[in-house]
Design a protein around this nucleic acid. Structure first.
Length: 581
RNA sequence: CGGGGCGUAGCGCAGCCUGGUAGCGCAUCUGCUUUGGGAGCAGAGGGCCGGGGGUUCGAAUCCCUCCGCCCCGACCA
């Protein structure tokens, strides 16, 4: 049993000025962590306890589908050179030299190490499939560590890797992870959504991120209320309500001096933004310096989605065109750009957003300074374009599956599952013999979970739900499965022997019943003890105080904020039923 | 890497502009009184004022420089 009087739980009355997001303030104030450097934290007693509980859940679920390894964080450069990531990872990799001058790095992920094991040891299809995982410290030299434990340079990750003989096998490994992750996050008490993710530069075929909605997050995601559709905003699509076009009429040039923006033109011509064409003139630039002009036409009230457009162009970086670049393609300056008269070439790509397909009688720039055109119809007045979805969905638009209003919000990524393909087995030369004795490459998947992010998102979720006290203090409670303790027993007057003894007894009984108990036996005022108990986020509290004379104690459920009275002998049974122990 | 801010006791801050022996609140320690929502009184300890250099009789304060940390952006398989 843990007695608070003997523990190191350095709670603070005020949060350090550095801490901005709720979880960071809580972690420091409650004595879970202390900072050692930018993005580097000491995990103290409470922090370690919570992390260990999360790790235990992850391990239990992962053991159902895979085998645990423990691989070195210190890696020789060679394997990273083989995969091409020694240079590919760039500045984000911590690098060092040993005494002989050989290059080493600290692992940011373990595809290379895992693949090297598979390459050296796995010879036959009979040994496949394999799912290997580890729970390990990762190092990433983030350009900007921030938000406490949300973005750090050293953190704990559960990473697993699957090796299969073919894509059907990979599908199974992927699905096993999907299911295991849902069990893990559910057991950790999180509300999460699984979103379709952009597979990005990894070039894999399928990828899903597990996200928790919170203002502290760095990604934007869209999801439907029934949970059937969810996607990163970089990929999300939506059904659009049918909009009525303006009545048919002849193409007509109108003088629009000084009217450049969608709003100005709309007001000037007394039309709605959705009757207009927005022209986005962009330059796509590749790492090797190659560049291509990309002009995208969108509905006036829509926003360009740069990620969608970038992946359409083929993984280049996008930036707005400079005025000279605009002048080289159009006959007018920004504000009067339009679709008519442009021709695609290997220097210019023209994209019509899907939302404009089939629309008629639109208003667009005339490619002539101070003029716009009325009654422009794609496919009639201009033809040279590719149609693609390159717009960003907005809050409330109907989701593409059930047509329900999309919710868009910031979110934290707590896990990611990814069909990797052959990238590493190919570059590192992993081969096995198939049934026909033919050499084939195993196909891989990789799957990650950010352990600390489970704790921080649980704190963020609860803090957001409970809101601030009247005095502006944060309030929260952790899910019992990941709280450092399940129950705290608050002896309101420690120097009253009957209260102290009752506390000891209930603590012993709870422990015997399998609970993780913290007995607050400090000689402090009741107020201090209550505040501290709240601060460390323990979900249940037993108050031992005045009512003990009547044989009663209070049980505070901090998840629902309810207080109930129980006989001294009944409180254990009460908690057992609450926990289903 | 671009922009902004900050570094003074464990935490939160004042002092700096206008140079003259470093302060407040909380926390800590001792004693007494207290004890249902961060108690009261009395006393005490705790500082390379981020580092280095300079100006000056004298620097937390002015100047130069380096370092660290935070925020916004870029970046983030």
């Amino acid at each position: 049993m843990h007695r608070w009087s003997r523990l190191f739980i350095p709670t603070l009355r005020e949060a350090p000025a550095d801490a901005v997001v709720a979880s960071h303030q809580i972690l420091v104030r409650a004595g879970y962590i202390r900072q050692l450097g930018a993005g580097i934290y000491n995990y103290l007693f409470l922090g370690t306890r919570s992390i260990n509980k999360i790790v235990a859940i992850v391990r239990e679920e992962m053991d159902k589908i895979g085998q645990e390894f423990y691989l070195p964080a210190l890696n020789p450069a060679e394997i990273w050179q083989e995969s091409g990531r020694w240079t590919g990872m760039g500045e984000n990799m911590f690098r060092l030299k040993d005494r002989k001058g050989a290059d080493l790095c600290l692992g940011m992920t373990h595809e290379e190490v895992m693949t090297s094991i598979a390459r050296d040891e796995v010879r036959s299809y009979k040994q496949l499939p394999q799912i290997w995982y580890q729970i390990q410290t990762k190092f990433r030299d983030e350009p900007r560590p921030k938000s406490g434990l949300l973005r750090v340079r050293q953190f704990t990750m559960k990473d697993s890797y699957s090796f299969d003989i073919d894509e059907a096998g990979l599908d199974v490994s992927y699905r096993l992870h999907d299911e295991a992750y849902r069990r893990i996050f559910t057991r950790c008490g999180l509300e999460f959504v699984a979103v379709e993710a952009d597979s990005g530069a990894m070039g894999g075929s399928q990828s899903q991120e597990f996200m928790v909605y919170t203002e502290a997050g760095e990604d934007l995601i869209a999801s439907s209320p029934d949970g059937k559709y969810a996607a990163n905003i970089e990929k999300a699509t939506a059904l659009l309500a049918v909009v009525e076009d303006l009545p048919d009429a002849e193409l007509e040039e109108v003088h629009t001096p000084g009217q450049r923006t969608i709003e100005e033109v709309g007001a000037f011509l007394k039309t709605q933004p959705h009757h207009q064409v927005k022209t986005m003139a962009m330059m796509a630039v590749w790492p090797d310096g190659k560049a291509k002009s990309v002009v995208a036409f969108l509905r006036g009230d829509h926003q360009l989605n740069e990620t969608k457009l970038a992946s359409l162009v083929g993984g280049a970086e996008l930036r707005p065109m400079q005025p000279e670049e605009i002048a080289s393609i159009f006959n007018a300056p920004a504000g009067y750009l339009g679709p008519i008269g442009l021709k695609q070439s290997d220097k210019l790509m023209i994209v019509l957003d899907k939302a404009l397909e089939g629309r008629r009688n639109l208003i667009a720039g005339a490619n002539k300074e101070e003029f716009h055109l009325r009654n422009v119809t794609p496919g009639v007045h201009f033809n040279d374009f590719v149609v693609a979805d390159v717009r960003t969905v907005t809050e409330g638009e109907p989701d593409p599956i059930g047509g329900q209003p999309l919710r868009i919000g910031k979110a934290v990524e707590i896990g990611h599952i990814f069909k990797l393909g052959y990238k590493y087995t190919e570059s590192m030369g992993a081969r096995v013999l198939d049934q026909n004795g033919k050499e084939v490459m195993p196909i891989m998947g990789c799957y990650g979970i950010g352990i600390e992010r489970i704790l921080t998102s649980a704190m963020e979720l609860s803090a957001a739900k409970k809101g601030l006290t009247d005095r502006g203090d944060l309030q929260y409670a952790l899910p019992p499965s990941i709280a450092p303790f399940e129950v705290v027993i608050t002896v309101t007057k420690q120097n009253d022997a009957s209260l102290a003894e009752a506390g000891e007894k209930i603590a012993r009984d709870l422990e015997a019943a399998g609970f993780d108990v913290l007995l607050d036996d400090r000689d402090q005022s009741a107020g201090v003890k209550f505040k501290d108990a709240d601060l460390i986020g323990v979900p249940y509290r037993v108050n031992i105080g005045k009512k003990l004379a009547e044989g009663k104690v209070e049980l505070v459920d901090r998840l629902s904020d309810t207080v109930t009275e129980h006989g001294v002998g009944d409180v254990v049974a009460q908690l057992k039923s609450a926990f289903q122990k």
